[in-house]
């Protein structure tokens, strides 16, 4: 169980960063909703996974949160990707790709 969560942690961080880069500043709920939408309901994030991930990214300095008002005049914390985050995203995506390719090669090709 825990190792699954580990793997997902790394991927989740990337997914969130990519989402913020592509979609612009989002607050937690809209981020989760959009991702669910885009992944055609295959990726459902509950609060237990989302908030710890956001904290991690924020502590790393890759995203930044600020309080703003929504259309309905509710206050919400909007997260946006930072420059360091963009750099990290590019770097980590590359690494992820290479890792995926490597695993792929191991699993699909006969030794």
């Amino acid at each position: 169980m825990s190792s699954e969560v580990e793997l997902l942690q790394g991927a989740l961080d990337l997914i969130l960063l990519r989402a913020l880069e592509a979609m612009g500043p989002q607050h937690a709920y809209s981020l989760a909703a959009r991702l669910e939408q885009v992944s055609k309901s295959r990726l459902t994030l509950n609060q237990g996974t989302l908030y710890p991930a956001l904290v991690r990214l924020e502590q790393n300095g890759w995203i930044k949160g600020s309080w703003r008002r929504t259309e309905n005049n509710r206050e919400a914390k909007y997260y946006s990707i930072t420059k360091a985050g963009t750099r990290a995203l590019a770097r980590e995506t590359e690494r992820w790709r290479r890792l995926a390719g490597f695993v792929d090669a191991l699993l699909l090709h006969e030794p």
Partner: peptide
């Protein structure tokens, strides 16, 4: 801060 954020989240959900 977390409380505030969760409350905000709740509010947004309510709106939805």
């Amino acid at each position: 801060e977390l409380e505030r954020e969760l409350a905000a989240h709740l509010g947004v959900l309510e709106d939805e």
